[in-house]
Design a binder for these strands. Structure first.
Lengths: 114, 114
DNA sequence: CCGTATCCCCGAAGATACTG
DNA sequence: CAGTATCTTCGGGGATACGG
């Protein structure tokens, strides 16, 4: 049983940040947008530095919050695909805007992204 | 001496979320936008549940990241005003739509905000 | 390939008291 | 009024090993 210890949001801004904040959610959503659909292993390789535990945990939270869809194929070897929900897609223009904002200010950090 | 232990961002999305993530930054920026200028005590009363330590700490981080301006008046009693920088104002459309997105999905939680 | 299961650490955040 | 100064807690996240 998963514990959701997010305290009750005090306003919509708070609510939203509780759902897309955290260390990896922004990047996961962004990658799922740019590649449309990604398998678990592909996400694992895309999200630099993430451990399997955190990837699974974060994906489950996103799924529970209706931001990603998890599609399991009953095959051997296993295959699981993740995509964004319509609700999550509504956020894309703004995450994109945020990305450009960040890009302008990053300056020296010129590390490859996507 | 302040420790900035944010690990190096791996991309612009990561960079941006490191700067406006955290428990209170979104709300602080949003309130500073809606009221244009707020004093320390006004922020303290607006950001429900925040302790003085966290408010000061968060404001300092925002200042260091060129997101808020801290204006000190040499008066007795002391008066300190906080405003958003131009850089932070560029984020307002993002936070505003995030707020609307959150508002649509909040459902039951109908707690007063702003 | 796609995860779980454990154990563990550290830093964000809280509580409380005090000050120029 | 606008903060500091300490001490403490807690849970997000890390490391590692294993499993269907």
């Amino acid at each position: 049983m998963t514990k959701k210890l997010n305290s009750d949001p005090v306003c919509a801004v708070d609510y939203a940040f509780q759902r897309i904040g955290g260390k990896y959610k922004g990047r996961i959503i962004w990658y799922l947008h740019t590649y449309t659909v990604l398998r678990y292993g592909e996400l694992k390789r895309s999200i630099v530095g993430i451990t399997p535990k955190m990837l699974t945990q974060t994906l489950r939270e996103l799924e529970e919050d209706d931001l990603v869809i998890r599609r399991v194929y009953s095959e051997v070897p296993p295959k699981v695909e993740y995509t964004l929900t319509e609700s999550a897609k509504e956020l894309i223009p703004f995450i994109d805007h945020l990305r450009e904002w960040g890009d302008k200010r990053m300056g020296n950090y010129k590390i490859i992204c996507q």
